[in-house]
Design a protein around this nucleic acid. Structure first.
Length: 585
RNA sequence: GGGGACGUGGUGUAGUCUGGUUUAACACACUGCCCUGUCAAGGCAGAGACCGCGGGUUCAAAUCCCGUCGUCCCCGCCA
């Protein structure tokens, strides 16, 4: 018997035909005199009917169990009146068995392959091949494939060339921790797996390829989160002879096309744009979720002379006072407010000041320190209404921004203010080029040190903090999909930037010398963007974690329960690589 | 490196706060039987866990304490 169709794709028009399908026993409903099997393949489910007239086939059906693999030949027919299932594509038809072959049996499953129960992720990952049989996974990876395919088609049409860059590259200690690969031929030397193809794609521009793209695997040896894995895929692209708006425009057209072709969703371009400064001030985040309002307001001017010493002194020390109105928060109990205080404490806030709005007045232990007009300013600026809670943070700007930003997001989620059907794309622009690192006492690039300044002639060590970058991040529903920039294409400017970043000539030469050299041989103006492909897949599939769109992910402790990686290696292997294990933690 | 939540038959959970009524409960899955229109099928019967692991307190521990391991979430980190 040879398969002629996918179970999930049998059309109503095939009624009356004899077809052959293959798949897994999804469920079995034995009525004694008639047995139904839901046969599942990657496209969906088809109901198979076994009737007692066909004695040998019926006997086989009585012994079928979950996840047995079958090949079934039968006749497609319309289901009898009143037995239609409108929840499935094949719900109006069924296959009456003529012949069945059991291709394989299955042991009892370690967990149910059901859309109705959640199993621990550890177990699911250990038996990933079973987990991946779930219909939502089959759907997720079809979406992932469609997205990848559509991206390639789009970029090909736009004249981009898909060029591979190496996995075995040079370690560049700026940025994330590298995965190191020991060199057998050169003991004591190491390759690094790429954190991104950044330098190579710039060199491809210098080489004249003009438009490059790659669905590039990247590696970062950092701690994991729901949206981070050790290895991940990014849509990496670079273009020559362009400015910011060219890359932005291309990205918008690509994303709008993905929405249309994969989700059948119309997205209007151009997308909204917000400056970095605005995003941090109003949303407390460089990746604001604009699906709900709840904007943060600054009171550093209005309250600098207020009677509440915590606020006044914070402002005097150069900090800020900002507030957030949580709708219907006045009903929060003391312990609920304590929990909020603890929550903002995770971001360094030493306390949380609050006022409950009851009727038209404010109530709390700090209200007495404020003049009536100050309260009025606060409530009107925040548009606070009866029953709301106003939360304030007073501290250095970074702590206030992060704390209120996180509180806004948490409250928005918990109060159900987020419309899950919205797809809000947003560009963040006008990024600072550098920020001061207190730990290292030096300037650090906000994106990376190859990002072009808006005004390269004006920049110096004194004004570096106020300089803007030709950089842009694309945000979707509060998730950073990716970012890019126009790069520096002149070696003198690149040297100047390294100088301001306190990367010495020797060190720059050692780390990035090959790029600096390349910039001296006719580098064209160029720029690009890198988008997190896994995050895009997760958002398009409606998943919260990128692990749901990656076939074989690692656990949070960076283990693979399926293969048991990482694992110890033999002494012989280590010897060949010239590696001595000094201590084992 | 730090904070939090969780860990109970194959799976998902209840029981833990307030130790004893527990012979550890329920649902699903599993095994057997019944059933000709179900679709998260139904009915009857059955098997299956010394409650992550180690130690302690107590007459008595799934329950309290200490330690440890594992998973997830968050902070740091992720140019």
């Amino acid at each position: 018997m040879k398969r002629s169709m996918y179970c999930g794709k049998v059309p109503e028009s095939s009624i009356g035909q004899e077809i052959t399908v293959c798949g897994w026993v999804h469920s079995r409903r034995d009525h004694g005199g008639v047995i139904f099997i839901d046969l599942r393949d990657r496209e969906g489910i088809l109901q198979i009917v076994f009737q007692p007239e066909n004695v040998s086939v019926f006997k086989t059906a009585e012994n079928l169990r979950s996840e047995y693999v079958l090949c079934v030949k039968g006749n497609v027919r319309k289901r009898p009146e009143g037995t239609l299932n409108s929840n499935m594509y094949t719900g109006s038809i069924e296959l009456v068995v003529v012949e069945v072959e059991v291709l394989n049996t299955s042991a009892m499953l370690p967990f149910e392959i059901s859309d109705y129960t959640e199993t621990s992720e550890e177990l699911r990952l250990k038996y990933r091949y079973l987990d991946l049989r779930r219909t939502n996974f089959q759907r997720n990876f079809i979406i992932r494939h469609k997205l990848a395919n559509e991206i390639r088609t789009f970029l090909n049409e736009e004249g981009f060339l898909d060029i591979e860059t190496p996995f075995l590259t040079k370690s560049t200690p700026e940025g994330a921790r590298d995965f190191l690969v020991p060199s057998r031929m050169h003991h004591g030397n190491f390759f690094a797996l790429p954190q991104s193809p950044q330098i190579f794609k710039q060199i491809l521009m210098i080489a004249g390829f003009d438009k490059y793209y790659q669905l590039a695997r990247c590696f970062r040896d950092e701690d994991l989160r729901a949206d981070r894995q050790l290895e991940f895929t990014q849509i990496d692209l670079e273009m020559s002879f362009v400015e910011e708006e060219d890359v932005i425009n291309l990205t918008e057209r690509m994303l709008a096309r993905l929405c249309k072709s994969v989700l059948n969703m119309e997205i209007k371009a151009p997308f909204k744009t917000m400056t970095y400064k605005d995003a941090m001030l109003r949303y407390g985040s460089d990746k604001p979720d604009t699906r709900f309002d709840m904007e943060i307001k600054d009171f550093s001017q209005e309250l600098k002379n207020c009677g509440f010493s915590v606020f006044a002194s914070a402002i005097e020390k150069g900090g800020v006072v900002r507030g957030l109105c949580i709708p219907e928060g006045a009903k929060f109990s003391r312990s609920e407010i304590d929990a909020l205080t603890k929550f903002v404490g995770e971001y360094g806030a030493k306390g949380l000041a609050w006022m409950k709005i009851v009727g038209s007045s404010a109530e709390s232990n700090i209200v007495k320190y404020f003049k009536d007009e100050e309260i009025k300013t606060i409530t009107s600026k925040l548009d606070a209404k009866d029953g709301d809670l106003i939360a304030f943070l007073a501290d250095e700007e970074k702590i206030v921004t992060q704390g209120l930003g996180a509180l806004r997001l948490k409250s928005g989620k918990e109060l159900g203010l987020i419309d899950k059907n919205k797809f809000n794309f947003l560009w963040i622009v006008d990024f600072p080029l550098m920020e001061w690192s207190k730990e290292e006492q030096r300037w650090q690039a906000l994106h990376h040190p190859f990002t072009a300044p808006k005004n390269p002639d004006a920049i110096n060590k004194e004004n570096a903090g106020s300089q803007k970058a030709k950089a842009y991040d694309i945000i979707l529903n509060g998730v950073e999909l990716g970012g890019g920039s126009i790069r520096i294409h002149k070696s003198d400017i690149q040297k100047k930037i390294f100088d301001i970043l306190d990367i010495s000539d020797d060190s720059a030469k050692d780390k990035f010398g090959f790029l600096l050299d390349a910039l001296t041989y006719g580098a064209p103006p160029h720029g690009g963007i890198a988008l997190g492909f896994d995050r895009i897949c997760a958002l398009f599939a409606g998943e919260d974690s990128i692990r749901e769109v990656i076939a074989f992910p690692k656990t949070q402790k960076t283990l693979d329960p399926l293969s048991n990686a990482p694992s110890q290696v033999s002494d012989k292997q280590l010897q060949e690589l010239g590696i001595k294990v000094v201590s084992v933690r």
